[in-house]
Write a protein that binds this DNA or RNA. Structure first.
Lengths: 159, 159
DNA sequence: GAATATAGTTTGATAATCAAAAGAAGGATT
DNA sequence: AATCCTTCTTTTGATTATCAAACTATATTC
């Protein structure tokens, strides 16, 4: 790896790390100090609108339903999520955010918004265009890798 | 949040998610299927060169030494890491990658290198410059947030 | 109506994490 | 040199995240 590539790599790693840590700490120190980033992620996946089933939600999150069951158990206990048995198909359980859940959801969105805002505000028209294109390029490459490794069944071929 | 901001936010989230999942799967399906991304992270932190102490390594990783002890236990058991008692100060334990550990380390670096390479190769001189500057800008903003939330002791002031 | 399929929960296991206690070694003070 | 304090690491006990497999309850199909 040449100097330039190394620099890009280091920047990406640093950005990555710091976003994760910042998010964790922002949650822990805010008004919702009893939920972790992982739990927040679950809350996001439950979402504030449609009442989705356990299976759907687990699939969105990329975890097994067993994992989701225990995660939802805890979020119910903490008062962020409600379970509802579906009347037309009584095997199905639908999950929804409580008022507190929606509050946490919005607060977290606000945090993301703040980050993006700080990123975008200082840029002029041209800078924004560059940012957009760069992120789209990164996303394209990452998506391609994702498809190779995560979705395909013969990923070994690609290394 | 306006359309542009929303788009940037979505891109960031998508990139983030997919990198994490891809990395996990690439490891699981490769030659080092017995180590997780978290363990790989530990291996990176131990590093292939200087033999650093447990405390130093834990600090780099941002975990307690207790956490590192169990992580290193497992990596020793799996043959990726060695413990060495320091002779000049016998309280100190130094950790180092075994041959297999170095191999895993290099393999994982190769994966990162591949990502960066795909990102950089199609760009001309100007494009690379723009990419570098964009990432530096993002890193600066993220670092600033990081310092506010993670390093300061009065982060509540900032939301 | 019995067999099969589907949705979700429970169980048993492993891993990541922390705080607090304990152990072991070094350094300082008297 | 005995005692106390500090430092480095491990151990312990607790919580959370995760999966696969077993289990339960309901629905569908033949």
């Amino acid at each position: 790896m040449n100097d330039f590539d190394q620099k890009i790599n280091d920047l990406l790693l640093d950005i990555f790390d710091k976003i994760l840590l910042t998010e964790e700490k922002a949650l822990r120190r805010g008004n919702f100090s009893d939920i972790s980033v992982a739990e927040m992620h679950t809350l996001e996946s439950v979402g504030p609108y449609e009442k989705r089933t356990m299976s759907e939600t687990a699939a969105t999150l990329g975890v097994t339903t067993g994992t989701l069951t225990v995660a939802i158990d805890r979020l119910v206990r903490k008062g962020y999520v409600e379970r509802h048995r579906d009347n037309t198909d009584r095997r199905v359980v639908r999950v929804a955010l409580t008022r507190q859940g929606k509050l946490a959801f919005r607060m977290h969105n606000k945090f993301h918004k703040l980050l993006v805002d700080r990123l975008v505000t200082p840029l002029d028209e041209q800078g924004r265009d560059v940012l957009r294109k760069t992120l789209i390029a990164i996303d394209g490459i990452v998506s391609e890798q994702y498809e190779r490794y995560v979705l395909s069944d013969h990923a070994e071929d690609n290394l």
